[in-house]
Design a protein around this nucleic acid. Structure first.
Length: 836
RNA sequence: GCCGGAAUGGUGGAAUUGGUAGACGCAGCGGACUCAAAAUCCGCCGGGUGCAAGCCCUUGAGAGUUCAAGUCUCUCUUCCGGCACCA
């Protein structure tokens, strides 16, 4: 009978659906006695079709989910749709459809494609984020965020994507470009909604430690860098005139005596006052204005930008030395970091050095390196930023600079001129988007009461479906009188509704909670008991492109939801994270624009889902990128067909019993024994590899077992012990393959007349007894170089082995006439003879 | 610049965590079957040397630790990723 993947895959998919094979049990139900395992993949955006990246991601998750079920876990393995977002709107504008119908028809299509892959999702928990039943809870969270002061509105310069017609969060700007469409991002002053993620900086950073081994090192590093904690001191510099002080943050209070001037950002709050009435006022103001209006720096990177500044005409005083420091406005000082003002220490900071050289400002050395000639400002070609001892710093002269950091900060604190301080790179999350297809932000603006949050009982604030989209991408919401017109929840008067929608990353920050808790419950966001049982996610699988964005937002959300009482006792959402590599084609990422796309549907049509799954997992370790290879998938297909032919041919020739059980006496027959050994070696290897996500080597182990069965089949079929061993090993093979090629395994399991279902067998346990060999191969080295191999009975004593080694011809050659200094013996493995 | 990760045959990749380098697959070569081709099956497959047994070299480069290093340490090179005027 020929292998026909399509009919048999369809057959088993129907059976699984009918038998509801993959439903997960709620706490209190029979299977919930088992240990739980929450297996989660990053849910897809319903763009129309699944691509190979999805297939790889979900094949990894499915193998894991199936394996864990066989290992006796109550597995939660859900799937849903990240259904709000720009592409729906853009497609709608282009094709004249509605974003909703576009989205839902895509969902339907992609669901069909996922089903064809044979993924074992519990579809009863499916959700789509664009459904009011979903986003109403997000609106409820937002009201609580407002109440707890974790959400606020602020006018500030924002990243604006002219092509997407909306603002972007810091995390969504990659090298000055939009993460979605790659357009150059502009600066635009807007009033926007922010979530106060910065309130959790310390915890987000500290808890990365608790994720420890479960997360890839590089993701932890990326998050650490992004959060960007820096320790230092706030230092106050009195202005020469008046009573005001300029406050700066510095990581180098030890260099305070070397601060010879001050640099302010163009947006510094005191700039206006400092400049007023001075001769430099006009020019400095014009300069500051030009910086503020300049388009955000290009993709090239800011260090190419020439440092520029203007003198304000004013001075402040160095709190340590009393020196007069001219105050400048400088283009390289960031308004959003620290205090927006920097004490300039040109001798020990490269940027200050360049600035001082350009404008001929004084350079004062205050750190001297030890054991090298003294630094002199006139010979310096660059700032000196390494360790040393203090000079020109009064009473601190001679002190080690590391020690001086604390000492100077302490001195400042005693005099009320400063204090130790921490700065973070992490900015609050701008969640306002000027687009239509998203969750409405549930607030209104009332002429009398100002901004007023919608009342919880009025939720959801529905996104209106009857709107006319604008060809240029502008949101139609501000033009929708029915949407905008609202009652003020406070005074009942007329009010205007907020027309911005949430960033779609808000929806993806909590979807996994909804899957776990109460996907169909319209009475509450989460059933706390369910959450307590299922959370945290035991294994999360997705692309590394979300290392900062989604994975940081979700961590923040969990912490905030916890503190607001929506969930309990969960501080981190994902205990283990696997970031799978890209599927490439000809060395570069598959993309429609490059035209190097391999369509999963086409591959299923040609080879069947089992082959596609097997190849995706066999081609490379999951974390690594791999190139799609036509001959590679052919190889996987060949293997599957060989297994098919082998098993269908075996039907009726072997007993219909499954694996030999542990208590059963192993066969006496040589060949049967060898087969049993290979069987159990594979069981051991595949199980261990699956625990470590080494799918490629797990598959290799099943191939090895199969190759052995194929080459010994005829002899094994000759006599009863052989037939039993063959039946047992074949049953084990199909069981081991069940997570990878579930349809094939089930079909052949049935064909061979084994009882039950391959995929519902308990994962086989390997038996130490079966792995014992009678004859061992011992390698013999002389001075660490391999010189001989010995076949020795396993029960040979240490002395017998060594004697055999020393008398071996080739060994004799190397030790003859030389003194044996030592013999190292790794029992059962290796003997190393050390000679002089 | 700072922080992470990686480098093994023609190729994708293995190597029990310090103990037989190259598992498994792909490609290639030779053979069987066939009128022929495809499919399938059998054999070979890191380089050098030898009739053979064997020997020498080989895990990006160089040093070191060790009886023993792809694996540990140091230095360097190259590639990939992240952050980047963050004071």
């Amino acid at each position: 009978m020929k292998y026909d993947p399509h009919s048999l895959e369809q057959k088993w998919q129907d059976i699984w659906e009918k038998e509801r094979t993959f439903r997960s049990f709620r706490p209190g139900r029979p299977d919930a006695e088992k240990p739980k395992f929450y297996c989660l993949e990053m849910f897809p955006y319903p763009s129309g079709n699944i691509h190979m990246g999805h297939v790889r991601n979900y094949s990894i998750g499915d193998v894991l989910a199936r394996f864990k079920r066989m290992r006796g876990f109550n597995v939660l393995y859900p799937m849903g749709w990240d259904a709000f977002g720009l592409p729906a709107e853009n497609a709608a504008i282009q094709n004249g459809t509605h974003p909703a119908s576009w989205t839902f028809s895509n969902i339907e299509n992609m669901k069909k494609q996922l089903r064809r892959m044979g993924y074992s999702y519990d579809w009863t928990r499916e959700l789509a984020t664009c459904a009011p039943e979903y986003y109403r809870w997000e609106q409820a969270f937002f009201l609580k965020f407002l109440e707890k002061d974790l959400a606020y509105r602020k006018k500030a310069s924002q990243h604006w994507c002219p092509s997407c017609h909306t603002v972007l969060a810091n995390e969504q700007v990659i090298e000055g470009r939009c993460w979605r469409c790659d357009s150059e991002v502009e600066a635009k002053e807007l009033t926007q909604w922010f979530l106060r993620i910065s309130a959790y900086s310390e915890e987000l950073l500290a808890d990365l430690e608790t994720l420890g081994k479960g997360w890839p090192e590089r993701v932890l590093t990326m998050q650490r860098n992004w959060i960007g904690k820096s320790l230092g001191a706030d230092i106050e510099f009195p202005l020469e005139e008046g009573t005001q002080r300029l406050r700066v943050f510095s990581t180098r209070p030890d260099t305070l005596a070397g601060a010879t001037f001050m640099s302010l950002s163009a947006e510094h709050p005191l700039l206006d006052e400092i400049l007023r009435g001075r001769p430099q006022e006009e020019e400095a103001r014009a300069f500051a204005l030009s910086i503020r209006n300049s388009v955000k720096t290009s993709a090239k990177g800011p260090e190419d930008l020439e440092k520029e500044g203007r003198f304000t005409g004013a001075y402040c005083l160095n709190p340590l030395t009393g020196a007069r420091m001219p105050i400048w406005v400088a283009n390289f000082v960031l308004a959003g970091y620290g205090t927006g003002a920097v004490m300039a220490v040109p001798a020990h900071d490269q940027r200050d050095y360049e600035f001082a050289r350009k404008y001929d400002l004084p350079i004062q050395v205050v750190i001297q390196p030890e054991n090298s000639p003294a630094l002199r400002p006139e010979d310096m070609a660059a700032a000196y930023d390494r360790p040393g001892r203090l000079v020109n710093s009064g009473t601190y002269d001679g002190m080690d600079n590391e020690e001086a950091k604390g000492t100077v900060a302490g001195w400042l604190e005693e005099r009320g001129l400063g204090r130790p301080s921490v700065q973070w790179r992490l900015r609050d999350w701008n969640v306002s988007r000027q687009r239509y297809w998203g969750t409405p932000i549930p607030v209104v603006y009332c002429d009398r009461c100002g901004m007023v949050p919608e009342k919880a009982e009025n939720l959801p604030v529905l996104l209106p479906l009857e709107v006319q989209t604008h060809p240029d991408g502008r949101s139609p919401l501000p033009d929708s009188p029915t949407f905008c017109k609202a009652r003020c929840p406070e005074c009942g008067g007329e009010a205007r509704r907020e027309t911005d929608t949430f960033d779609t990353f808000v929806e993806s920050s909590w979807y996994f909670l909804r899957y776990a808790a109460s996907p169909a419950d319209n009475g509450q966001a989460f059933n706390i008991e369910d959450l307590r049982y299922w959370m945290p996610v035991d294994q999360y699988i997705g692309g590394v492109e979300h290392a900062i964005l989604h994975l940081l937002y979700s961590r923040f959300f969990i912490k905030a939801l916890n503190d607001m009482g929506f969930i309990r006792e969960i501080r981190e959402p994902f205990s283990n994270l696997l970031t799978q590599g890209m599927v490439r084609m000809g060395g570069s990422k598959m993309s429609k624009s490059k035209g190097n796309v391999v369509s999963p549907s086409e591959m299923i049509n040609r080879y069947g889902a089992d082959t596609v799954r097997l190849f995706c997992l066999f081609a490379a370790p999951p974390e690594r990128d791999f190139d799609w290879s036509e001959s590679g998938i052919e190889g996987a297909y060949r293997f599957i067909q060989r297994v098919w032919r082998f098993c269908t041919d075996l039907a009726g020739k072997i007993p219909p019993a499954g694996p030999l059980s542990a208590g059963e006496e192993g066969p006496r027959d040589e060949r049967a024994r060898e087969t049993r050994l290979r069987e159990h070696a594979a069981i051991k290897k595949v199980g261990e590899d699956l625990e470590n996500f080494q799918f490629n080597t797990a598959i290799a182990a099943t191939m090895e077992l199969f190759n052995h069965l194929l080459s010994t089949r005829d002899e094994l079929l000759d006599e009863e012990p052989g037939r039993k061993a063959l039946a047992s090993a074949t049953a084990s093979l199909l069981t081991l393959l069940a997570p990878f090629t579930p349809h094939l395994s089930e079909e052949l399991w049935q064909t061979l007349g084994f009882a039950g279902r391959a995929g519902e067998q308990p994962w086989p346990a390997w038996q130490a007894e079966a792995l014992r060999r009678d004859i061992l191969t011992i390698v013999v080295q002389v001075n660490g170089k391999l010189r001989a191999r010995l076949e020795l009975p396993a029960e040979a004593s240490g002395e017998e082995c060594e004697a055999a080694a020393l008398t071996h011809d080739n060994i004799q050659k190397y030790i003859q006439g030389r003194e044996i200094k030592k013999i190292l013996h790794v029992p059962g493995k290796l003997i190393n003879v050390v000679v002089a």
